[in-house]
Structure formats: structure tokens, C-alpha cells
């Protein structure tokens, strides 16, 4: 069979060329396209909405019960709406989504630079009119944008649902700036994950090793965070009065609670939303929530860690390996 291309001789390319400022976007697009070819990425994306779906389900059930209740019987939906704090639902959605955001970051970012290093792809990139800055920016956005979409789309969908259905039940009046706060909180969370995973990816020449290292850091620090939750619960839910020693220890425990990837993200979300949180799904509980940390120190740590990891990536991206 003859080739579909009739003229097989070499011809010079005389077509248009896009300006150099668009190169990073070509890299970002390809990074995203490659990630979304993996089915697991779609599973992670769909799963990230589970808390909101749970809330919608609970409200649907309560609505049904309220509609079929006996005359003069208490309205369970009214009671539920009085118990819940709307902005806390976004905090819980963000908090419960952390493990999925980690998975998303690993799928999107763990191999993004590591695999390029293994395959000498940096020579291909950097021999084209692409700078180190274009490459890093493209890779970063290639991780950040899908991660942001995974985080933000379910939250915005739930926000729209709340706005349309419960505007008169305090959805807007509880926090008129909620929408803006969400627009600040989710990009910061996505940017933090993206920067960390890109940094780790640049340190290895195998995506799996980079991913395992980032996951190990995440889980080890998260274990520490969970240990602080146990300490916090013991100190605040003990029998009788909280002792003076316990009162003195609490601020330290609360600070340590945020000393993890997960903790920093949740601390940042609490600080931006201006809430310590409330029981999940509006289920009554005696448990006291860990108070929100001050925003600036949390942001400073997140920005500092992100900058450090991006600096490492910047130093590691080289077209030439010099062997001494």
C-alpha cells in the first residue's frame, strides 16, 4: 500500500511560528493531556466530590422526611440547617479531599520531571526555543491547573447548589465573602501540592521514587498530625475540668497539629474561612475543634516550602550533565 503522504521529499517549514511567550503553555497542555489519559486520574477527580455528594444526599433524605412528617412533628431539615455552618462544609470538603488531592498530585506530578530526566527529554525541550523558566512554568501549571479543577469544581458546584437552594436559610448571610474566600483557598492548596510534587519529581529520575518519597513525607507528617488530634481530644474531652498543665500544652499541640502537608493546607483553609470547623454532616458532637491558626505564619511556611521546592527543581533542570 502506498503511503498516504504522496510527496516524501524533505521540504523546509515556512509556516507561522507562535511567539516564545506561549511555549510554557504548550508544555502545560501536554502535561495535562498525558495525565488525563490515565483512567485513575478520572476516578480521583470524580471521587474528590464525595463529601459534597454526601451532604447533598443527607439534605435530600432530610427533605423527604420533612415532606412526609406528621403534622406538628418537628422539621428535621430545619433543625439540620440550624446545626450546620455552611462555610464549614467547604472546609470539610477540602479536608476530606486532601488524600485525593495527594493522589492527584502524585499522578500528575511525580513523574513529570523525573521521567523526563530518565528519558533525557530535557535535551529535547532545551534544544528547542524553550527556556528553563518555560519548562518549569509549563510543568507547574500542568500539575496545578488539573489539581485546582479537581478541588474547585465540586466546591463551586456545591456553592451553586447552596446559593440556589438555601439562600434564605443563611447560605449567603452567614458569610457574604464565602465565594471570594473559596477562590483564594483552593488555588493556594493546589499550588502548595503542585510545588511540592514538582520539587520531589526533580530530585529523582524515576517517577515512582519521587512519588513514593512525597507520599512518605505526606503520610509520616500526617500520622504526626493525627497523633496531635488524639492528644487534643484527650486534653479537651477528659473527665472534669481541664488541668492547668493541659491548658498550657494545648497551644503547642494545636501548632503541631498543623505541622504536616495536610495540616498546613487545612490550617490555611481554616484561617481564610475564619472558622475552626464544626461536626461533619451536622452530626451533633461534644468534640472541640482545633482552632484556626493565624493566616500569615501558615502562608509564610507554605510559600517558603513551595519556593524551596521550586528552587530545587530550578537547579536540577539542566540540559547538560557535567561529569567531573
Amino acid at each position: 500500500m502506498s503511503s498516504p503522504i504522496a510527496d516524501l521529499s524533505y521540504r523546509h517549514y515556512e509556516g507561522v511560528l507562535e511567539p516564545p511567550r506561549h511555549r510554557w503553555w504548550a508544555i502545560a497542555k501536554t502535561t495535562m493531556r498525558q495525565a488525563f489519559r490515565k483512567k485513575v486520574m478520572w476516578v480521583v477527580s470524580a471521587s474528590s466530590a464525595w463529601y459534597y455528594l454526601g451532604m447533598v444526599f443527607v439534605m435530600f433524605v432530610l427533605d423527604q422526611i420533612a415532606a412526609n412528617r406528621a403534622p406538628n412533628a418537628p422539621d428535621p431539615m430545619e433543625a439540620f440547617l440550624l446545626r450546620i455552618v455552611w462555610k464549614d462544609q467547604f472546609l470539610h470538603g477540602f479536608g476530606f479531599g486532601q488524600i485525593l488531592f495527594l493522589l492527584g498530585a502524585l499522578i500528575l506530578g511525580a513523574g513529570t520531571i523525573a521521567n523526563d530526566t530518565r528519558a533525557n527529554a530535557l535535551l529535547v525541550y532545551l534544544s528547542k526555543p524553550v527556556t528553563k523558566r518555560d519548562y518549569l512554568l509549563g510543568k507547574w501549571f500542568g500539575v496545578f491547573l488539573p489539581l485546582l479543577a479537581i478541588m474547585l469544581i465540586p466546591s463551586l458546584a456545591f456553592f451553586l447548589f447552596g446559593l440556589m437552594s438555601y439562600r434564605e436559610k443563611g447560605f449567603v448571610s452567614q458569610d457574604p465573602l464565602l465565594f471570594l474566600k473559596l477562590l483564594l483557598m483552593f488555588p493556594l492548596g493546589a499550588a502548595f501540592h503542585a510545588s511540592l510534587v514538582i520539587g520531589f519529581s526533580s530530585m529523582f529520575n524515576q517517577g515512582r521514587l519521587a512519588g513514593a518519597t512525597y507520599a512518605a513525607l505526606y503520610f509520616v507528617t500526617n500520622f504526626f498530625t493525627q497523633a496531635m488530634v488524639v492528644v487534643h481530644v484527650n486534653l479537651t474531652m477528659g473527665r472534669g475540668e481541664t488541668s492547668e498543665a493541659a491548658k498550657a500544652a494545648l497551644p503547642i499541640v494545636h501548632s503541631l497539629y498543623y505541622a504536616s502537608v495536610d495540616g498546613l493546607n487545612i490550617g490555611m483553609a481554616k484561617a481564610i474561612l475564619g472558622t475552626a470547623g464544626s461536626p461533619y454532616f451536622g452530626i451533633p458532637s461534644r468534640m472541640q475543634m482545633v482552632p484556626a491558626p493565624p493566616l500569615l505564619p501558615v502562608l509564610a511556611i507554605m510559600v517558603g516550602l513551595s519556593a524551596l521546592m521550586l528552587f530545587i527543581a530550578w537547579r536540577r533542570i539542566r540540559a547538560v550533565e557535567v561529569v567531573g
Binding site: 509556516g15 507561522v16 516564545p20 501536554t30 528519558a119 529535547v124 534544544s127
Partner: peptide
Amino acid sequence: MPEQDCHIPGMSAVQFVAYAGELAGMP
């Protein structure tokens, strides 16, 4: 054309070469 093997992982030849073209600024 570098001395050592180099490619973008996870791509077919046509995707790889087209991507190289995009990196050079081609639509």
C-alpha cells in the same frame, strides 16, 4: 540530534515529533 537516546516518555512517535514542533513554536 543528541548523541544519547532521548524522547518524551509515554508518547507515540507522531505525538513526540508534533510536540517537538509545538515546542519550537508551530501551531
